[in-house]
């Protein structure tokens, strides 16, 4: 079972800015992949909506190529590092292809300061700055990769657990790690979990998580009820809520929620209704 929904934020609607979040999913007989990416705001990141889209594509392309051999007799850290390399190569290539097809136009950069223009000329890839988060259920593995301030959580027996230890108070307010930074790989988390031990995963952008102030509150008020909705196949309700969270009741930022659950998850643990 999986769910993805991205909705534009109220602030973006008011200011006439496009939605810079992007999510995607992939599903076949063997695997299910969901993504959740948040293109940066700010003048320099003028194509971050495309950056977020490419991040989703890149993550799916890389995770689709993972096969049983990948994990066979391999050190987890070696596999993780290869996924970092592949994700960066894939995203870089998509961005470069886009830049070649549609070079930055005068009109796009006219409101930038000289300093911003210079930094963009040195590193055009900055225009596409984005976070990335992706989760894949494949055989006995649950793979999660993430760079930036998006939320990544695991579900286990009706509870929500952070997938990664947090870096020390680094990513607050509008500070986040990004696929466009020169040392992106160093900050990219890759988790390869034993799928038997978990029920699934939840990914979201900071627009979803910020209105809840504490993780306990987020778990209780959003994560668990949302998983319940997916299990009950009432995704429509959840979708509608995400739209409202972005446009009306949240912090005004774009919102993305992606959920991945094993098909045999115990309904009762997440849903109050059964």
């Amino acid at each position: 079972m999986f769910f993805t929904k991205t909705a534009i934020g109220g602030h973006h609607i008011k200011s006439g800015i496009v939605c810079q979040d992007y999510s995607a999913s992939y599903h076949d007989a063997e695997r299910t992949i969901v993504t959740s990416c948040d293109g940066h705001g700010g003048a320099v990141y003028l194509r971050s909506d495309r950056g977020a889209k490419f991040a989703s594509y890149a993550a799916i392309n890389v995770l689709r190529n993972v096969n049983r051999r990948t994990f066979y007799r391999r050190r987890t850290e070696d596999v993780a590092n290869q996924l970092r390399v592949q994700l960066l190569c894939e995203w870089n290539a998509l961005v470069e292809r886009d830049l070649a097809a549609r070079p930055l136009r005068k009109g796009e950069v006219k409101h930038l300061s000289d300093e911003q223009l210079f930094s963009l000329r040195m590193e055009p890839v900055k225009a596409y700055g984005t976070t990335v988060a992706a989760a894949m259920l494949y055989g006995s593995k649950l793979v999660i990769l993430s760079l930036g301030d998006g939320g990544c959580f695991l579900f286990r027996r009706g509870r929500m657990i952070p997938a990664f230890e947090e870096e020390d108070d680094e990513q607050v307010a509008n500070l986040t790690n990004s696929l466009c930074q020169s040392d992106a790989a160093e900050h990219m988390h890759v988790g390869i979990f034993d799928a038997d031990r978990f029920d699934g995963a939840l990914l979201c952008t900071d627009g979803v998580i910020n209105p809840y102030q504490t993780l306990d509150n987020f778990e209780r008020s959003l994560a668990i009820p949302a998983a319940g909705k997916v299990i009950e196949h009432r995704e429509r309700k959840l979708s509608d809520f995400i739209v409202r969270l972005g446009g009306e009741i949240g912090v005004g930022d774009d919102v993305t929620l992606s959920i991945l659950l094993k098909d045999d998850v115990n309904r009762r643990t997440y849903s109050k209704e059964v």
Partner: peptide
Amino acid sequence: PIRGYHTSLIK
């Protein structure tokens, strides 16, 4: 070199 990975080399 891979941008984002071979940080020092590219610098």
